[in-house]
């Protein structure tokens, strides 16, 4: 079976980190885009299809939390995994309340990251599937009405 790569957007102001983690994710078969700021992240989301955003919560400028809020407002189907510093579990909880899928502490374990990535991807697929079904039902009812 051919695995369909997850379209990942990696957002962190640490350029070396973004570069290395994206190489690693690509090596593992994912399709990776990168952004070094919250704003760049939103620009990419507006243009490209992305399944999951990996988002550093601590960034200068538009910070991670704000970016997260904006993503969930404008692209509600996109899943977000947060990267947090340790000891900021409350930020993580706030983030989950804003709709993030999960969080990881830096430096993160790669196995764990890929595991969560799959989880997020699955949730997005299921969500999209439900929407498709709902739309189909809606269509049926409408055509039923004209019957």
């Amino acid at each position: 079976m051919v695995r369909i790569p997850t379209r990942v957007l990696l957002v962190d102001d640490e350029e070396d980190f973004v570069e290395m983690l994206s190489l690693r994710l690509k090596e593992a078969g994912e399709q990776v885009s990168t952004a070094y700021s919250g704003k760049a992240c939103l620009d990419i989301l507006a243009q490209d299809h992305i399944d999951v955003v990996i988002l550093d919560i601590r960034m200068p400028g538009m910070d991670g939390m704000e970016t997260l809020g904006e993503i969930k407002k404008r692209f509600p189907l996109v899943e977000v995994i947060m990267l947090t510093g340790h000891g900021s579990a409350e930020t993580a909880v706030d983030g989950m309340k804003l709709g993030a899928f999960d969080y990881l502490m830096k430096p993160a374990d790669f196995e764990e990251l890929t595991h969560k990535l799959q989880g997020a991807r699955r949730r997005k697929d299921e969500q999209e599937e439900r929407i498709r079904q709902a739309e189909a039902r809606l269509l049926m009812r409408k055509s039923g009405g004209t019957f």
Partner: peptide, 23 residues
């Protein structure tokens, strides 16, 4: 705590680089 936090970022870079080479 401040120092520890700052160190986590370069640590993450080292970790991903090594992991990538391993893969």
């Amino acid at each position: 705590a401040g120092v520890a936090h700052e160190i986590n970022n370069p640590l993450a870079i080292i970790k991903e680089s090594a992991g990538w080479m391993k893969s």
